[in-house]
Design a protein around this nucleic acid. Structure first.
Lengths: 233, 233
DNA sequence: CTTGCATTCAATCGAACAATTGAATATTAG
DNA sequence: CTAATATTCAATTGTTCGATTGAATGCAAG
């Protein structure tokens, strides 16, 4: 009963290999950025606050675990998620942590719920309201991420420009804000700031990757997007 | 853009903590056994081929990551999965590994497909055929695991007794065998041996934990089951 | 209250990991 | 061809992890 063949240990080692790739906070953060779209090593290092060499090594570990792929374009190497099933795996990981680690709840209460205590809007509810034109969808991510894919009809106003560009939001409709994922602070913060200005606003439950994973429609600006800077000033 | 609050790193650290618990083959094997039902430390150590002290330490790591819980009964400590969402997480992990690591396919071909090359029966298909009485469901796990929960109407014949007890299987109906999970060799081996005897047989897609996770009906012998030995004999 | 048993704890050692640094490779621009 | 840039490689250091060993704890039977 204890010796069930040599293949068993080898298989478990492969599964463990994938889990090990997910077992470092920096790699999870890189994956969260990659879930928004393809990125160069330098852009990822900047976004995660890592040295380029360090980011490169983490990305290679993710690659060897099958979680991301890379392709060379000119002098850049662009990484992307291998598949949407990686998004599903991260969602399952977050769900287990949320339900069984009290620390997660404590951190959410301390840092996120301090901004926005309202319940998020479920994705399917939002889609219905989008189709009826009842709601303004607000994407508070940086323009590069918006361009790579966003909710149908979503307005893109990065969080830091929100105060300045309030005029672009219709005042009579509720705003639903979203960003990179269920624990991405941008949407929580945006909803709070809008409500402080008297604009009814809530968060979407989950971010763009989870929306796409659910098979809901996504709009994209163009096929490939430069992440380095604006295309000629 | 790079400083999104101190809560972010803390949350990622919690998610990484869960992934780290999954990042060792021994712990994954312990979880697979625990997915069959509650077990004592000694039984788990024996099943996984570990020393008791080593198993105990791995179990404590799983517990701290929120994946399992434990309770004391007499002089034994019994561990169990914290929730079915842990089964879902392990399924997502296996799925990513299967789809993106060529090694997994190689190992399956080398050790499992060498026994049984037929496609497995999807769970929902099987349930339909069970209701019509068209099929014999064969549980090849040890009796303790069968007693803790099994498919409706399943016959329990552990793999090592299969040859001896072939007579218990109706000859006119197809047999569908299952065990602990999609890569548990017992079911592959059972299906192969039955077909060698001229009995049409296939595997279930996935094992009992996956069946239960899908919300399909499960029969149980009694509430709590001793895992040490047969109840007087 | 002593004995036996299941589990955990504590200390140890070797291996693997994470981050840093500086060098090496490869591609584009000139 | 040379220079500049992006990425990876290689070597180093401190830290964490995994397994082993033997002791300690806690429960239960006698």
């Amino acid at each position: 009963m204890s010796s069930e063949g040599p293949g068993k240990r080898e298989l478990l080692a492969q599964f463990a290999r994938v889990a090990k790739a997910l077992s470092h906070p920096n790699r999870l953060e890189l994956l969260e950025f990659l879930a928004q779209g393809e990125r160069t090593v330098e852009a990822l290092a900047r976004a995660a606050g890592l040295s380029v060499a360090n980011a490169s090594q983490h990305l290679q570990q993710l690659k060897q675990a099958g979680l991301v792929t890379s392709r060379k374009t000119g002098q850049h190497v662009r990484y992307r998620l291998a598949d949407d099933d990686v998004v599903a795996l991260m969602a399952a990981l977050r769900e287990v942590a949320r339900r069984h680690l009290a620390e997660v709840d404590r951190i959410v209460q301390a840092y996120l719920a301090a901004r926005d205590t309202l319940e998020p809007v479920p994705a399917t509810d939002l889609l219905e309201r989008i189709r009826r034109g009842e709601v303004t969808v607000l994407d508070v991510r940086p323009p590069e991420e918006y361009a790579a894919g966003h909710l149908p009809g979503a307005v893109n106003i990065p969080l830091e420009e929100l105060e300045r560009r309030l005029g672009e939001l219709p005042k009579d409709r509720e705003v639903v804000a979203y960003c990179r994922g269920p624990y991405c602070v941008l949407a929580w913060e945006a909803a709070a700031r809008l409500r402080e200005k008297g604009i009814p606003a809530r968060r979407l439950e989950g971010g763009l990757p989870e929306w796409r994973l659910a098979g809901l429609p996504v709009e994209a600006e163009r096929e490939a997007v430069e992440t380095e800077g604006p295309a000629r000033g």
